[in-house]
Each structure stands twice: as structure tokens, then as C-alpha cells.
């Protein structure tokens, strides 16, 4: 049985079916991300103080460059198929997958930096002090319970405190040369910069995590068309070209979401 309208346009819509399908799907995605952006606005407007300079702007910029470049390669791949240049398609499509992987690796690095970055409240004599920084050895997501674990108690932690960060976060997370040793018994609170630490971080992880899942999903589809799925080129080239276009539309949507996420989370 032949599936209708995979290549020729359907008379009532004027488009092949997959294109109508992807736009309907993207409309639902707009609602999903729109709801989260609205949540961000409501949380921010309702907050007395909103943190600035918590994220590394140069790294965010690098990821923006990676995604813009990937949108160019995905179009080049599709245009190559239109010009019947299958070899070039393979090259550009492969580049897109590599760029998607680069984005995810950079994002993982950013996440790792947040889960190894700590807020510590401790008593020093009669006063209570607070500081932020990285614990020596970069352990991930320690809590007070981790330090007081009866099977493996930790008597003290050595912290590299943050340099007072500039407003724009370029020095955020940079370590101060002077290490501070805090005995466990003096620590009142120990918390990594995960989504539980601040409302800002909660919305940051939600938005960027959902976006990263979309990047991974898109990369899998694009990778499939680069690899085993590309066999269709020899049996049904027009349908294959349409599939690549549809994947490209999804990829552009994912990139467009990042174009909004970057200024909202990193700059404003």
C-alpha cells in the first residue's frame, strides 16, 4: 500500500503531509516553551531580587555560535539534496550531528560546573558566615548528610571561594587562590547550585534541560537520516529530501528557542 502525499502536495493544504504534521507539532512545542517562558516572567516579576551573573556568558555565546552554525549546515544538507549532490549532503548532515553533540557536551560542562559549585553557611566563633565556591576535588552535589554519612564521615571541606563576580558573570565561578578549610561540625548548610538552590536555577535547569532534550532528539533524527535512513535516497529521492526538510524545520525551531533562551537566561 502506498502512503499518499509524501511527495506530491495534498490538494486541500497545498503541502505534503509531513510538512503539515511538523508544523502542527511545532505549534504544540510553541505552547510548551511559551508556558515555560511565561512561568519565567511570572517568577521574575514576582521576585524581590533576581540573581545576575551566575552563568558564564562566553560559554553561552560559544553554544549560540554552535547552534547558528548547525542551522546553516542543516540547510546546506537539504539544498545539496535539491541539487542531487548526495556526497555534499552527507558532509553537511554529519557536520550538523557533530555540532549538536558539541552543544550537548558544552551544556554538560555548564551543568557539571553548577553541581560542583556550593553555597556554605558555617559558624566561626560567635558569628555565622556564608560563602560560595568550589570544594576541593570537585565533588558533585554534596549535602550536609554526605559529610555526616556514618559509614564515610568527612571531617572537613576545603573550599576555593568565588572571586566577587562582575555584574555580567564573566568571573562567575572563578576560584580565589586562598583556600578556606571549614570543619564539618561548624557547617550549618551545604548546598550545590542545583535547581533546588534558587528559583532562578530551577527555571534555568527546566528550560535548558528541556531544550537539551530537544537537541538530543533532533540530533538522533538527523543522525538517522545521515546514516541508515539515507538509503531511501536511492529508492525515493524526493521523499527523502522532504524528510530531511522536515527534520531541518524541527532543528530550526530548536535553534530559535535557544536564540531566545540565551539573552533571557545569560544576559538579562
Amino acid at each position: 500500500m502506498e502512503i499518499p502525499y509524501t511527495v506530491e502536495p495534498r490538494p486541500d493544504t497545498g503541502l505534503f503531509n509531513a510538512k503539515v504534521g511538523i508544523w502542527l507539532f511545532l505549534a504544540s512545542e510553541v505552547m510548551l516553551f511559551g508556558a515555560l517562558f511565561s512561568s519565567y516572567i511570572m517568577l521574575r516579576v514576582g521576585s524581590d531580587v533576581w540573581p545576575h551573573g551566575m552563568l558564564n556568558v562566553p560559554i553561552g555565546t560559544l553554544n549560540t555560535i554552535v547552534l547558528i552554525t548547525s542551522s546553516i549546515t542543516v540547510v546546506m544538507a537539504w539544498a545539496s539534496l535539491k541539487l542531487k549532490a548526495f556526497g555534499k549532503f552527507k558532509l553537511y548532515q554529519g557536520c550538523t550531528v557533530l555540532l549538536a553533540m558539541t552543544f550537548v557536551i558544552i551544556k554538560s560542562y555548564e551543568y557539571h560546573d553548577k553541581f560542583t559549585h556550593y553555597f556554605v553557611r558555617y559558624s566561626a566563633g560567635s558569628e555565622v558566615k556564608e560563602l560560595t565556591g568550589h570544594i576541593e576535588g570537585s565533588p558533585m552535589n554534596w549535602t550536609l548528610a554526605t559529610l555526616n554519612n556514618p559509614t564515610r564521615p568527612i571531617s572537613e571541606i576545603r573550599i576555593h571561594p568565588d572571586v566577587a563576580s562582575g555584574e555580567h558573570g564573566h568571573d562567575s565561578g572563578a576560584a580565589h587562590p586562598e583556600v578556606i578549610t571549614v570543619p564539618t561540625k561548624q557547617i550549618k548548610k551545604l548546598e550545590s547550585f542545583g535547581p533546588w538552590h534558587l528559583t532562578y536555577l530551577a527555571i534555568y535547569f527546566t528550560l535548558t534541560g528541556l531544550h537539551a532534550l530537544h537537541v538530543i532528539g533532533g540530533a538522533l533524527v538527523i543522525g538517522y537520516f545521515w546514516g541508515p535512513g539515507s538509503r531511501m535516497w536511492y529508492s525515493d529521492p524526493e521523499r527523502f529530501t522532504n524528510r530531511v526538510e522536515v527534520a531541518g524545520l524541527f532543528w530550526h525551531f530548536v535553534d530559535l528557542v535557544w536564540i531566545f533562551l540565551f539573552p533571557v537566561l545569560y544576559l538579562l
Binding site: 510538512k19 508544523w23 547558528i68 542551522s71 540547510v75 537539504w78 526538510e245 531541518g248 524545520l249 530550526h252 525551531f253 535553534d255 530559535l256 536564540i259
Partner: peptide, 14 residues
Amino acid sequence: MSLKAFHILFICVS
């Protein structure tokens, strides 16, 4: 909207 049109829009926003 084709990939071409979406790409042009995306580059304008970029």
C-alpha cells in the same frame, strides 16, 4: 512555510 523561509527568518533573528 518551507525550510528556506524558516531559515531566512532564523538568520534575521540571529
